[in-house]
Design a protein around this nucleic acid. Structure first.
Length: 425
RNA sequence: GGAGAGAUGGCGGAGUGGUCUAUCGCGCUUGUCUUGAAAACAAGAGUGCCGCAAGGCACCAGGAGUUCGAAUCUCCUUCUCUCCUCCA
């Protein structure tokens, strides 16, 4: 959500910011402005009437106590008249308030000044790369071929028991998969200082409203009974942990990391980059979430991105860091880096992490605040999150990068104690 | 799933229709005192919106209603606790 004062005083800045993302909000902004003005005058008028009525109602009690029954009765009829006038206005007040909130939930976040303008992924900027593409003395295989040969995955039976987009990890594949998120959560908590959270995988709609998956992106979510949704990312439960709370100064910045399953319909993405493990309806991920002070949040984004990169570095995987342009970033964030890992068998850079700063956009929706000092006014925190990392593409990058001429996969050092072996064979 | 009891300010806990602008205790902030702290005493202290201000309005889990007036009465929802049932 955007600040109402900002919307009121600089509507043209909102329109211009959204336009940078390729979103036209001009008609929404003008409807909002009109409704907000009406809301203001209505509210003031109603408040005055309420004040008069409160006073009248209060006098009745006093008159009754003094035994002045007749005066009390006439005050009653007077108050009744005032009340009728208020009731009408209250209906309109409620309607306008509901519509204002509806509109406010529709507005996208505005991009930060440091985000480059652009329309598509072609306009993204590669800001740095780490390592180099590995050289092979043979033709490297794609992970789906390696996995088949070594019995790491069973995609056919995954499709049978659940549907396309659901993978079954088998044998050493299952063990590698489990080792990966075990090691990664250890890495982010023990090495990088995040507090570990193990969240529910189903959340209510208020949480999804808080992180802005709802109301706009409902078609991407699996919905369960009882108003619950399967989480598309641990960002949702973890960011919402302190919803409607005011944190003490020493709690901000706060760093949390969580392992979770993630569930996405991926509606509209069918057919594109979907082979093997490239795009799943269910996958596992270690997610990092930060609450930051507003003046520090862009520095915190840099360190968050570095923490995500440290996973790839420890595994020795070549990757690049891409700053998304305004047209390619999501509606909700203010600045976003993608990490793209090199996948030698597929022959592509694969998006494996998104590290985003949302500014106060989510914090306003979820009402997450902090107080700098006792007695001071609460302020919204800035929220950030980043994958650290998602396992399916990490799985494929490892298997493809470390495949050997003899058909085995040599495991990176850090994983060996987790897997209990130095190679998949 | 069944039966019952609850939800009040940072925490504990009163309040069952009219100075509730919510008693009291703990904790918190400031002042007096002290070299400093503690103790004692005094004062202060919620959140949001409107307003230059004075001030006003709303908020006692959430929503709807009754009433001139609701923390208090009615209905719905959510959550917590106890007992029963079921269960990894």
């Amino acid at each position: 959500m955007l600040d109402r004062q900002f919307l009121r005083t600089q509507p043209e800045a909102v329109v211009a910011g959204a336009r940078r993302k390729g979103i036209d909000v001009s008609s929404l902004v003008s409807e909002w402005t009109e409704k907000y003005q009406r809301f203001g005058t209505l509210r003031t008028a109603l408040d005055e009437k309420r004040a008069a009525m409160n006073q009248a109602a209060k006098s009745i009690g006093a008159l009754m106590a003094q035994g002045k029954k007749e005066e009390a009765e006439s005050a009653k009829t007077q108050a009744k008249d005032l009340k009728d006038g208020i009731a009408e206005g209250e209906v309109e007040e409620r309607e306008i308030d509901a519509r204002l909130r509806e509109i406010e939930l529709e507005f996208p976040n505005l991009p930060h000044d440091s985000v480059p303008d652009g329309r598509t992924a072609d306009d993204n900027v590669v800001v740095r790369a780490w390592g180099a593409k590995p050289e092979f003395a043979f033709q490297p295989e794609a992970h789906w071929d390696i996995a088949k040969r070594l019995g790491l995955l069973d995609l056919e039976r995954g499709a049978k028991i659940s549907g396309s987009g659901f993978a079954v990890y088998t044998g050493q594949g299952a063990r590698l998969q489990r080792s990966l998120f075990n090691w990664m959560i250890d890495h982010q908590t023990l090495r990088n200082g995040y507090r570990e959270i193990y969240p529910p995988f189903l959340v209510n709609s208020a949480s999804l409203l808080g992180t802005a998956q709802l109301p706009k992106f409902e078609e991407d979510l699996y919905k369960a009974e009882e108003g619950l949704y399967l989480i598309p990312t641990a960002e949702v439960p973890v960011t919402n942990l302190y919803r409607d709370e005011i944190l003490d100064a020493d709690q901000v910045p706060m760093k949390m990391a969580a392992y979770s399953g993630c569930f996405r319909k991926e509606a509209g993405a069918a057919g594109k980059d979907t082979r093997g493990l490239l795009r799943m309806h269910q996958f596992d991920k270690v997610e990092m979430v930060k609450y930051a002070r507003p003046e520090e949040s862009y520095d915190e984004l840099e360190s968050l991105t570095a923490d995500a990169e440290s996973v790839l570095q420890a595994l020795g995987l070549h990757y690049r860091v891409v700053l998304l342009c305004t047209g390619d970033m999501s509606a909700n964030n203010a600045k976003c880096y993608d990490l793209e890992v090199w996948s030698p068998g597929v022959g592509m850079y694969l998006e494996i992490s998104s590290c985003s700063n949302f500014g106060d956009f989510q914090a306003r929706r979820a009402n997450i605040r902090f107080r700098r000092a006792p007695g001071e006014k609460p302020e919204f925190v800035h929220t950030l999150n980043g994958s650290g990392l998602a396992t399916p593409r990490l799985f494929s990058a490892i298997v493809e990068t470390y495949q050997q001429a003899d058909g085995t996969v040599l495991l990176p050092e850090v994983l060996r104690s987790y897997v209990g072996s130095d190679r998949l064979a």
